[in-house]
Structure formats: C-alpha cells, structure tokens
C-alpha cells in the first residue's frame, strides 16, 4: 500500500520543472521590485503633503498585500495550473508543514492579514503594543516595523495583535494628544501655574488648535505637591517629544520668573542650599508622560 504523504509530495513535485521555477522566480522578483517602487513613490508623495501624510502612507500595506496575494493566485492558477486533487494534496503538505514547523510564521501572516482588514493601527500611527512603542513605519505580511523614540527600528511580529492590546495615539491622523505633567510646591499659586501652562501650550510652535482640538488644563492636589496637567494636540506626531519638552521648558521658565517652585519633597534640602529660591528653569519634569 502506497504512503499517502509520499504520494502528495510526488504530486506536488510533478508540478515543478525548470521553466515553472524560473517563471515563479521572475514573478516574485518582479512583484517585489514593483511593490518597492510603488511604496517609494507613496512615501515621497506623503512627505509633500504633511497634513495628509499618515493617510497617504496607509495605502502602502494595502498595495503590498494586494499585489502579493495576486501574485500567489497567479502562480497557483496560471503557472502551476493546480487541479482540485493537487490542491488537496498541496493543502495536506502545507498543513503538515505549518502544523509542525512554521506555525509562528503562519500566525504572523494571519496577523498581518487581520491588521490590513481590521486596521487596529496604520502606517504613521504612534502605537504602544506589548513592550514596543513607536511610529509604525511599515506593515509587512510577517511583522510591523516601528521606529522608537530612540530612533531604533523594531520589528514586532504581527501575531502580537492576538495576545497584546494595542494603543494608537493618533489612529490614522497626523495630530496626537500629548499629556504633559508639571509638579510644583503645594504653596504655589495654582491658578497662575495653570494660566502659564496653558499659555505655554497655545504659544508653542507645534500646537494644533481648532474646534476639535482644544487645550485642557487640569489641577490635582497631592499631599506633597500640586500637579498641573496639560492636554494639547501636537500638529504632527513626529514632534511629540519636542512639543512636550517645549511646553515644559517654557512653563518652568515662567514659573521661575513668577516664584513658582518645584515641590520640596521632590528635592529635599534643595531650597535651604539655594537661598535665592529659584530653581533651574531648564529642568524638565516629564512625570508620568516621560518616555
């Protein structure tokens, strides 16, 4: 009695000859180059339209997946001309391969398709997924490429979307809400601090202000300090850290001029040593929003 798996392998092998292999290689190389060129132009185009940068970049993974799926279909239907029995045989072999050795890869591929169909995030989004944080620069079939705030390029497997929650700061928009916390001595003039923090936000060169994007300033009292929290939108998520730093720096410069001090509990003995009472205006207190 013949072994069914060796029969399937023989059926599969019978499909290939030198000519077919060359055709498949040509098609794969051609589609790869075609996709790279197309994506290159999309990226160039997106840089010309800052306002719609993220939206334009969102097209690239869709193009990539579409072209590759079409190529696979073309290989299967026209070059290999797989019949139903061959397809069943092929599925059996593929199933065995996926089940034993390449289940992670397969899981990543399915993750990639889910990302394209469900859009939990897009190219250009600033996302947090598991241990990863950064701007999505590419969504591939197997992995998502992120650029971290430290300018590292991280390749996160697409299967992470099944196991980790994804937080997208801008979700397809170029703008993003930035939360900046500043802590001060509880004896400080809280209203003055709030006014200064708000002005530091709306005078920033990175602010986005319109009907839908407004500034919120919140005050919280803690036993050892006051916290002024500014929620404002940066006009381009690439300036996320510059914007936060800009608000913090200019706020502290004004705080210093108006005699608002950092909480003493944070810097024990600091004010005894510095009798002038002023603290460094350039000191950054990123607080919970620091990354």
């Amino acid at each position: 009695m013949a072994n069914p798996s060796s029969n399937a392998a023989e059926t599969l092998l019978s499909l290939f000859n030198i000519e077919v292999i060359l055709q498949i290689i040509f098609l794969l190389v051609f589609s790869y180059v075609f996709v790279r060129i197309l994506i290159f132009f999309i990226l160039r185009l997106s840089e010309r339209f800052d306002k719609y940068r993220v939206q334009i970049r969102m097209i690239s993974p869709i193009i990539k997946i579409t072209v590759y799926v079409l190529v696979l279909y073309l290989i299967a239907s026209s070059i290999l001309a797989i019949s139903t029995s061959q397809l069943v045989a092929f599925s059996a072999v593929a199933g065995a391969i996926i089940g034993f050795g390449l289940k992670d890869l397969f899981s990543d591929l399915v993750g990639g398709i889910v990302i394209i169909l469900e859009h939990p995030y897009h190219v250009g989004d600033q996302i947090e997924m598991g241990d990863y944080y950064g701007e999505v620069v590419d969504i591939g079939l197997r992995s998502t490429v992120l650029r971290t705030p430290d300018d590292n390029t991280v390749s996160a497997p697409n299967s992470l979307i099944f196991t980790e929650s994804v937080a997208s700061g801008n979700y397809g928009s170029a703008e993003m809400m930035i939360v900046t916390d500043m802590f001060m001595d509880p004896k400080s003039d809280a209203y003055l601090a709030m006014r200064i923090a708000e002005e530091a936000a709306f005078t920033s060169k990175y602010i986005l202000l319109d009907e839908d994007h407004r500034i919120t300033v919140l005050l919280n009292e803690f036993p050892s300090h006051l916290r002024v929290r500014v929620k404002a939108y940066v006009n381009d998520l690439r300036y996320e850290f510059k914007f936060r730093s800009d608000i913090t720096r200019r706020s502290w410069k004004a705080f210093s001029e108006h005699g608002i001090k950092a909480p003493e509990a944070f810097f024990p003995g600091h004010y005894e040593r510095d009798s002038t009472g002023g603290r460094s205006s350039g000191r950054s207190t990123g607080g919970s929003s620091d990354r």
Binding site: I196, E199, A200, T203, R250, A254, E257
Partner: peptide
C-alpha cells in the same frame, strides 16, 4: 488700527 500688534506669541505675551 493694527490691534494684532498688542500680543506676542509667548507666555505672558497677552
């Protein structure tokens, strides 16, 4: 005339 010259785009500039 030219009321926009009454502000500066900075903290305490209004």
């Amino acid at each position: 005339d030219d009321c926009h010259l009454l502000y500066d785009r900075k903290v305490d500039g209004f």
